[in-house]
Nucleic acid binder design. Structure first.
Length: 682
DNA sequence: GTAGGGTTAG
């Protein structure tokens, strides 16, 4: 009979070198993101505890690590496959004996062991192998719990892809625990869209969502360096309200900040009003976020009103940050005089300007072309004990870049050196980008070399900028060399890097290599984002591979990502360029069904679709549509209409779009001039 | 607080 109690350390295990997994059997770090409703947040049993020491898990760990590495496929992905395990009847008797020896281990110890194994990437394959093993031998019955622990661990170690795979390979329909674990994994991996998708899926399965899930998604939106997606945010908010869950002060405040950052100050304002109606006092940082959003939208009057309201109620001690938010508004709308007034007001109230204040004002001067005033302000800044740094100069450089004045880069660099400021990585990155954007690859490479000789290690952004500059200039060969060099230097390519390279390969129609790149991306554990999918739709569409393009769009939606306007623009444009006007209009309809408002860009493409298809009447009806929907036709609209007329050989009407354009611009004088001299029309 | 990737005509 096999021993039921745990075995003493066997002779075999004494001879074996201790499996590496053992040394990793430590208490897993407490999860900051686990919600109260998830299994992973239950108090772990320390593996060093007395209870744990009653059992010797070494033989099992040895067995698991060897079995998980022998089936290389599942070990590499750390995902157990349900059909990989043979039924117990065919099992090796040694394994059966091993299983029997653990009969007495209580469930919570299995959970603790699993958590511990799952907390380290090196033992994750063993963790993944443990779950089906426990099921196979009926040693631990709470299969849901086991899977959710694994999913949590995969999510925490940035393997969302694997977590999703695992959840689909788990037996039976997903449980509430699985959903919670997946939502958490998506949220902490920066995929709030997917988390939201799972939230609604969860409800469709009849499970109720709770507060922590919403907090997780919201925090995921707030944590991202990019502004939160307003669409997702609105959905999250209405979803929460439809669940009749009450918002507390913290959640309201987070929503106000999120809506502000998403560039939706109206939504933020109404939430703030609701909070005030409940007698809640918003935090200073919340008000500042909203002020900043209003400023960024150029809504200075409202920003000022909000500023004064909170100032008067003494709820907001206007300090530098609040003034900066206000200042941002004036800088945004180019109201230099008002910006200067805010600056003076700060001085009057003895609120000391910080680097941000100076930066904004310097930005304003640079944008207005007042480089001298900017220089004076830099001096003043120094005198006031605020050391000008590379940041200020980066902003100046960016401002010149955006105005196309890349030649001024050298003057900025000189000025910077005169002020004793050393350019940092950020500054060099902007500089390289500036040169790259204007096709000055030599200068870009020079700046890159200079950066390295200054002892600054290029980062992923540097490499991406440089690689993309070469792609844009058609130097795809050099771009690939740089991509290689990037990796050799030890800099890991990120999603953006792959997006750039995929775009390059797609433009060259090197489809096999493109597919390889996607595989490499996945192998590296990187997820495809909206830009990746849009790039794919664009390159496939442009070369007429519409089937592939549509597949990408579907794959993206299935992954819980919201299709962007750009993605539909790319698709409509692809059809348009080939004169497939029916398909173009169909894609346009799908776009609208997805809740995306038509923009000038997509309507111009639609005109182009009709034009290429010689349907000039329909092309002009798009113009009518624009006018009815308050969309202002632009130069592209009119030139595309002219091209349409040329295509259908209605040369006598080619001038019509020009007249319409001039009329739009209210240039009556020129209109009459053109009408008076119709000979000019050809 | 800053920087990099995807869309329209000629």
């Amino acid at each position: 009979m096999l021993p039921v109690s745990p075995p003493p350390p066997s002779a075999a295990s004494r001879f074996l070198s201790p499996p590496p997994a053992l040394s990793l059997c430590r208490l897993s770090p407490p999860s900051k993101t686990a919600t109260s409703t998830t299994a992973a947040s239950t108090a772990p049993t320390p593996l060093t505890s007395l209870e744990f020491r009653r059992y010797d898990f070494a033989p099992l760990l040895e067995f698991l690590s060897s079995s998980s590495s022998s089936s290389s496929a599942s070990a590499a992905s750390a995902v157990p496959t349900a059909d990989a395990a043979p039924p117990p009847a065919q099992l090796d008797p040694a394994e059966l004996r091993l299983a029997e020896s653990y009969r007495a281990v209580p469930a919570h110890l299995w959970h603790a062991l699993l958590k511990s194994l799952a907390s380290s990437p090196s033992t994750l394959p063993s963790a993944a192998a443990l779950v089906p093993w426990l099921e196979r031998h009926r040693l631990c019955f709470s299969s849901d719990l086991l899977y959710s622990i694994l999913i949590h661990a995969l999510g925490r170690s940035r393997r969302l892809h694997h977590a999703l795979l695992l959840s689909t390979s788990a037996p039976g329909p997903p449980s509430a625990l699985t959903f919670n674990a997946l939502i958490s994994a998506s949220a902490i991996n920066g995929r709030p869209g997917q988390a939201l998708h799972l939230l609604s899926l969860m409800r469709r399965h009849g499970f109720l969502s709770d507060h922590p899930n919403y907090t997780l998604v919201l925090q995921s939106l707030l944590r991202s360096p990019d502004p939160p997606d307003p669409f997702l945010l609105t959905r999250l908010h209405s979803d929460l309200l439809s669940q009749r869950l009450e918002l507390d002060a913290r959640l309201i405040s987070d929503f106000v900040v999120a809506f502000s950052r998403a560039g939706e100050p109206d939504h933020a304002l109404s939430l703030l009003a609701a909070a005030q109606a409940q007698g809640l006092t918003p935090k200073t940082s919340t008000v500042v976020a909203l002020l900043s959003a209003l400023g960024a939208a150029g809504r200075v009057a409202e920003a000022e009103a909000l500023f004064l309201e909170f100032h008067a109620a003494a709820e907001l001690q206007p300090r530098t940050r609040a003034y900066n938010a206000l200042l941002k508004g004036y800088v945004k709308i180019g109201a230099l005089k008002d910006a200067e007034l805010v600056f003076e007001e700060m001085e009057r109230c003895s609120v000391s300007p910080d680097e941000g204040t100076y930066s904004l004002l310097i930005d304003a001067y640079t944008n207005a072309g007042r480089w001298e005033s900017a220089r004076i302000l830099i001096k003043e800044m120094e005198m006031n004990g605020v050391q000008p740094n590379s940041y200020v100069f980066s902003r100046i450089l960016a401002s010149f870049r955006d105005k196309g004045e890349w030649q001024k880069s050298f003057a900025v660099l000189r000025e910077m050196r005169n002020n004793g400021v050393r350019p940092d990585r950020h500054f060099y990155n902007v500089m390289i980008d500036g040169f790259g954007k204007y096709n000055c690859l030599h200068h870009a490479m020079d700046a890159f070399e200079r950066m390295r000789s200054d002892g600054i290690e290029p980062d992923a952004i540097t490499w991406n900028t440089l690689i993309d500059s070469h792609c844009k200039a058609g130097r795809h060969d050099k771009a690939m060399e740089l991509f290689q060099e990037m990796q050799e230097s030890g800099c890991m390519p990120c999603t953006t890097t792959y997006n750039i390279v995929i775009n390059s390969l797609g433009q060259q129609e090197r489809w096999e290599e493109l597919k390889e790149m996607l595989e490499r991306m996945k192998a590296q554990g990187l997820l495809l984002n909206v830009v990746t999918y849009t790039t794919l739709v664009d390159v496939y569409g442009k070369s007429g591979r519409f089937k592939d393009a549509i597949e990408c769009l579907e794959a993206m939606k299935a992954g819980g990502l919201k299709p962007s306007p750009t993605m539909y623009h790319a698709l409509v444009n692809a059809y348009a360029q080939r004169g497939l006007s029916e398909q173009a209009i169909n894609a346009f309809r799908v776009m609208r069904a997805d809740g995306i408002k038509p923009s000038i860009i997509v309507l111009n493409s639609l005109i182009n679709a009709f034009g290429e298809d010689q349907r000039d009447t329909e092309a002009f009806s798009v113009l009518q549509f624009m006018k009815e929907n308050d969309l202002k036709p632009d130069v592209v609209t009119y030139t595309t209409l002219m091209k349409t007329l040329i295509r259908v050989e209605k040369f006598e009407k080619v001038m019509t779009p020009v007249l319409l354009f001039l009329f739009d611009k209210q240039m009556y004088l020129f209109c009459s001039f053109a009408v008076a001299f119709p000979n000019l029309s050809i």
